[in-house]
Design a protein around this nucleic acid. Structure first.
Lengths: 127, 127
DNA sequence: CTGTATCCAGGAAGATACTG
DNA sequence: CAGTATCTTCCTGGATACAG
């Protein structure tokens, strides 16, 4: 097996357009229902929310608790194991914050593509 | 600005099919020429290698040194600033290793199809 | 040697409608 | 309420050819 598999393995958890936001929500709010997550993240649709939650659940980062009642109620929370991610998340968050500042200095205050086309960022990540 | 921008900002650096491998190569081998990277990562093609390197360069993680001679010679290395990433990389790597074990226990030794071929890594960085 | 320019396939993300 | 099913759009990544 390749050396960088360990990386990929960790990255897999975070990659996905909505994973970081979802994780942040669950970390700061604790347990949340499906609909609460939807409200907290207005731009996400049900399909995406479900999908990303399932992937996080598969990786044992998020715990899914189903209450058999009508109407249905499903609660999501960071699993015990998932809490171990916080070190990584913290490292990413801290470095990310520093990096945003660094980039500001290099390219000015709006390098990230919050503004319209400037042809600066070679990555297609900004749209 | 959104809270999770800091995350995304950090993730941007790592996301991209070849970024982790490239980074690992440059970290363990120091300065490398374009062709050396190509040889070290046999499955990548020129377009991708160039593209990912440019993104890393744009983010000031990788330094690109061009020698004006014929035939051309271009050397890549981790920038001084980029070295600050090592903390994050280490955290990801460690957690990733632990996670692979965790997943093994949950789903058996072939949970994600990640442990595929060891097809030969000429760089000698494999374990 | 170190790239660019094109074109194309496949997968991720999004809109929308339906269901227990 | 908490999803699934389906169809469409968009974008990343890959193959290949050309170039300084």
């Amino acid at each position: 097996m390749k050396e960088y598999c360990k990386f990929e393995s960790a990255l897999e958890i975070l990659i996905g357009k909505w994973k970081p936001v979802i994780l942040l929500q669950l970390i700061s709010n604790g347990t949340m229902r499906f609909s609460e997550l939807q409200r907290a993240i207005p731009d996400i649709n049900k399909k995406m929310l479900t999908q990303q939650l399932r992937e996080l659940e598969y990786n044992d980062i998020v715990h899914r608790e189903v209450y058999s009642q009508v109407p249905p109620k499903v609660e999501y929370s960071i699993s015990e194991y998932g809490k171990g991610l916080s070190v990584v998340l913290q490292a990413l968050n801290d470095w990310g914050a520093a990096h945003m500042e660094h980039m500001d200095k290099r390219y000015g205050a709006d390098w990230a593509g919050l503004n319209v086309d400037d042809g600066g960022d070679p990555s297609g990540t900004k749209k």
